[in-house]
Design a protein around this nucleic acid. Sequence first.
DNA 1: GAGCACTGC
Length: 714
Amino acid sequence: MPAMVSELQNGHRSADNRTEDSYAVKRMQIEQQRRSLPIASAEKRLVEEVRKNDTLIVVGETGSGKTTQLPQYLMKAGFSDGGKVIGVTQPRRVAAVTVAKRVAEECGVELGKKVGYSIRFDDTTSNLTRIKYMTDGLLLREALLDPYLSRYSVIIVDEAHERTVQTDVLLGLLKHVKLLRSKSSNGVPNANNLDPKNNFLLGNKNTAEDGSLIQRCNSAKLSPLKIIIMSASLDARVFSEYFGGAKAVHIQGRQYPVDIYYTLQPETDYLDAALITIFQIHFKEYAGDILVFLTGQEEIESVERFIREKLQQLPEESRKLLPVPIYASLPYEKQMQVFKPAPNGVRKVILATNIAETSVTIPGIKYVIDPGLVKAKTYNAKTGVESLVIVQTSKAQALQRRGRAGRDGPGKCYRLYPEIEFLKLPDSTVPEIKRCNLANVILQLKALGVDDIIGFDFIDKPSRMAIVKSLEQLYLLGAITDEYKLSDPVGIQMARLPLDPMYSKALILANEFNCLEEMLITVAMLSVESIFYAPRDKLQESRASAKSFSDPEGDHVTLINVFRGAIDYLRKSEPESSEQKTEKKLRKWCKDNFIDSRSLKHARDIHSQIQRHVQQMGFSISSCGEDMIPFRKCLAASFFLNAAEKQPDGTYRALSSSQVNVQIHPSSVLFRKRPDCIIFNELVRTNSNYIRTITRIDPMWLIEVAPQYFALQS
DNA sequence: GAGCACTGC
């Protein structure tokens, strides 16, 4: 600080020189770093390959620099000339943001000008943006408005090996767009099922006749779209075959070596084995932190307890081991503990779910302990029931986990199973699209003009049963017609909303039931993870607090009470203050009320986004006031597929899936009351079949609001 | 009276 003051006193000139100097030094450092990346020597070759091939697969291991460098090479080579954009998609928001910041810095430009990012709730791009980082889901939404993706000359799909639903749908879409654009540039009209004329979201026929988007797209000569698929998995074959034998280029990675150790015998108790391994490393190995992959919160908490207990039994000087938990539902401040260096001479042992596999990169890890298990979602298309089951990892996943030990130096990876078991593991994880409800995917594809879903060219096709089941669900919601076309206006409106189809339907109906204000809050709150936070050491307090929001009719109104509680607090405390101040106050209110502040913030963001959407659709925000009956009726009308009836033995039967032995989850405000007839938000199988987030309804309402469906049932 | 891997629009 004093140095800075004296510099200022010495006059501007010297201060400026200093900044210029340090700027030059920094630029030189950046250039040096860029040149030292493994990909740097391949610049010329990569640019050549992109020129020659319309589709290219780039296989590059961690640390190759592909994500930051390739877009810059392409910009330098002129691919973004003429106002075109090089788009790079990421599966995760943080990645899009951090990479964009880094690249802007490397280019020496201000973020949001030449280099920018765009993610939900946060768009830093402008007309000047030539390299745009974004989430793949966002590009899919963009495609609804611009089916040719006409602004883009190149689209780079990064981390394609992760095979998220969005990536898979995007790959299918890009394949079609490429075809469309190559045809359009040859002047041949599009004869494809992805005809933008079928694109309902572009609005009614008038828009087309007005000569806006559609005509412009058809008449403009679009250059062919360059597609680059970037993957870290060594096997490029799947992508190459999918894109008609596209060329694959391999880029060296830069990782330190990681030795692998297997157990001789299979372990009967992997938690115990993990504990023993932790202490072996602690006593015998050099300094360096340990990362242990566990399957969930409960395991993490019990391992943490065991470690602390065991440390108590050790002599003082051997206690220098610090367990640090991390999992997604842990509050943000506590998550940040993993980045804090341990006190001198103390070894950190990080107990993590697979959040540490890709989402969070923790520096300083030298040892990885991998029991080879993961909690994965599975979906039963027949019953529509989701469950979380502990399964073995794939080889690819084991490889990814191992890599976490080799980021800062050579490391060691302890797999708690014999080598022969590793060889038996599946090569890669089953793509998510084969493990989930497809209603949303189908709705989006329909909105993009794809009518034949069963015939759609998925890279991995979901089962026919799963597709049919989701089509049926969309039909029952009124989103598609007898001919499997998107319905007008309901289907079109539903596709516009970035929500689960059932939530979108609830908003459309709420407009008729005059409770749109309440339903907006409800779907925003339903769209986020657990709102209530119950720390183990303050269980009583947190329960009492949760109770103060509870409504006798159920959890949906309870959620509304929480949301409105926050708004009331803000209004009363200081109605007009800066955004930062508001956030700070909100965090305090959340802390006092045992509400997860990240979740509430997220819900508020979703709320304002969705509110804008429905207003654009011409809805006015109506409220049912004190009388919640219309609201609950509207819930019944929207979630009738999730209705359940109490059985003589006190358990419930889900009406649409005929799932029996269903129980109300103990977190529900109706857990003890057990009303005769309810609608629920989700049915998840864990130890038992649980329905979560529940509201009491009158069974007669079901016949009133969904007669076609419930007449058939009885 | 239970216990929710992880993302995304």
